[in-house]
Design a protein around this nucleic acid. Structure first.
Lengths: 238, 238
DNA sequence: TTTTTAAACTTGTATTTACAAGTTATTGAA
DNA sequence: TTCAATAACTTGTAAATACAAGTTTAAAAA
């Protein structure tokens, strides 16, 4: 009878609540249904519900208070790239458009790469994609992503327009970002970056190199980001 | 019979294991005792032990692997400016020199402030200080700090040379940073910043505004940072 | 009316039990 | 000896239960 049921219950509840919070079903500062109510509604026991809520706390979607309840926190709408929680919902949807400059394609790893690769990562190729993100029709965000091509069926044929790369990895492949490291600096835009981000050559841009660890052994995501901070800032909580 | 026993068992186990890991009792990459062993040794049940281990995972002290065990991770000594920590650990200490440009002094809050202040913060004045940090005799780091003047006896007469502001707050006043929010952007250096950081006017600098929450209610630390990323980057793990 | 008390919530901690799933070492057969 | 199957580990998920502790609400007493 149970067949497609590979995803743990607490994770399904996590996804459900997360979706509801992001979509605005719960007011910021309001209370989630109590643990016992969630038990009844979703037909689980309290430890399972609490497991889901703990993940939501960890990702900054709720704050718990003993005797009170779970308070909806609604993580920053804008670019939460600096915090682990925000990475998937990096940009608030209403004002954001994502343009795929380079659809995901399988390539060998670059000769000169900013980070050291594990053997398993080297053996498999990498999936490469470039995106440009717009806020209010202004380009603010140019990112280059390298993802090891380890068991990601149909990945290159998926559509990423207005969808979070991390959301797809998490919901379709059960790959979750567990942490990472990053380097930041301010750079002068060269002609390519300048034209992509619609700023003058020589103007300052925020440059970020990131390596994101996931729950899958030897599976790291590598991103290079150029950010136009003329009218926007990168926001992060920790 | 039970009297002093206010701290939950899982927390005590967390502290014990954390202490052992930091002290070096476990080799990096080695395995912690299995959950069942920990149950037996500390006389607790597995959920309790797992609760403690989850906290250790969250804090980066171990990595768990199904079927294998809990792998000791020994988190970086210097956490870096982008995660929860003070700026003094942003860069390896040996090469860092700190110059106090403006000794801590009590002032009113600025008229125009980047962040909203709570009432209690407004009522008390603020302590203001400016620092310039050098790596290899090159200035890389200029920071402006605003701290609410709430019960910090003798704070302005302390010496901060080569000492972490956050270390003093933690050890002398029991104030710990619990989290925060920050905004980042790339800016052109104006003449003042350029001369301070020894770069040309118009060169890009990394600009950071931070609000740090502490364990004391209504006590937040506000910092503005200009970073010379010509030869250095800001590194962070999360 | 105001204050205090108690009840009815909420989340926090903890035990006990069971089985699933991944890893490693051992055993047995080729 | 070599390889494959198995057993004995490990952590992961989940249920059912109990009580502690903090918060809110409503009832009772002043």
């Amino acid at each position: 009878m149970v067949e497609e049921n590979k995803i743990p219950q607490y994770k399904k509840l996590y996804e459900t609540l997360r979706r509801h919070i992001i979509s605005g079903a719960y007011e910021e500062g309001s209370l989630l249904p109590s643990e016992n109510e969630l038990c009844a509604v979703h037909n689980m026991t309290r430890p399972t519900v609490r497991h889901a809520l703990e993940s939501l706390v960890q990702d900054g979607f709720i704050m718990k208070k003993q005797g009170k309840g779970s308070i909806v926190r609604k993580p920053p709408q804008d670019i939460g790239i600096l915090s682990i929680s925000g990475t998937s919902s990096a940009i608030g949807k209403p004002y954001l458009r994502t343009q795929i400059l380079q659809k995901p394609q399988i390539k060998p790893w670059p000769e000169l790469f900013h980070f050291d690769l594990s053997e398993s990562e080297k053996d498999f190729g990498c999936i490469y994609m470039e995106r440009l993100r717009f806020v209010n029709k202004q380009p603010v965000f140019y990112d280059i992503n390298h993802i090891p091509n380890i068991n990601l069926p149909r990945f290159t044929s998926r559509t990423f327009e207005n969808k979070s790369l991390f959301e797809i990895l998490r919901t379709s492949y059960q790959i979750e970002v567990r942490g990472g490291e990053q380097k930041l600096k301010a750079l002068k835009a060269d002609s390519k970056i300048g034209s992509l981000l619609n700023i003058k050559e020589g103007d300052p841009v925020l440059y970020i190199e990131r390596k994101l660890f996931t729950n899958r052994e030897g599976f790291n995501i590598y991103s290079t980001i150029y950010f136009n901070s003329e009218k926007h800032t990168i926001f992060g909580t920790f």
